[in-house]
Amino acid sequence: LPQTPVRAAMNTIQQLMMILNSASDKPSDNLISYFNNCTVNPKESILARVENLGNIFKEKFAEAVGQGCAEIGSQRYMLGVRLYYRVMESMLKSEEERLSVHNFSKLLNNNIFHTSLLACAVEVVMATYGRNASQNDGINTETNLSFPWILNVLDLKAFDFYKVIESFIKAEANLTREMIKHLERCEHRIMESLAWQSDSPLFDLIKQSKDREGQADQPEPTCT
């Protein structure tokens, strides 16, 4: 059948649903074993963070779209959580092979890593559903939930979100071309503007690398 924008969107939604229908809302046995291998078991903090951020997300979603759509926000968030656990497991498997490491205590107890990964997973779900207004379950298309809305909701710096994107794409082989293109556009937008906001961790990184190179240079103030 000829590909139309609506059909492409439907394919994306169906593809995402295929991936996530079999995924779990909770960490898999494989993930639990990675957690158990950690010096500090991160399981409770991961579950607590998913719940806390979920409450914030649902509240912001309902504020943005309308209280009548709170349940839709909840469903979107849970799809994001399923994708989050699925990609986390895939990432750990590849890191295990790459680094020959089994103890991921530092990474799995890193709050920014988890928030970035979860934000990326939820962004994929939001972009998938946002792509086709008619599929928005009646959501008012005027409400702009597109990127970088998720960064503000989860109080995440754009540069930290940026750091997870490429590994996310590598870890989830079933992302559609549209989804990968969307994440790439996010990357470009972050690098072209969002990462250069005055409170961005990118400036710390630049300073650290300059200090390492022995150049005590001050990052230029951002132009207003």
Binding site: M91, S94, E95, R98, L107, V164, E166, S167, I169, L175
Partner: peptide
Amino acid sequence: PQDYHFGLEEGEGISELFDCD
């Protein structure tokens, strides 16, 4: 995905990016 431009170098992964290597 052939048309995504991978930029991470050899030996760079999620652990290094989040300073957890």
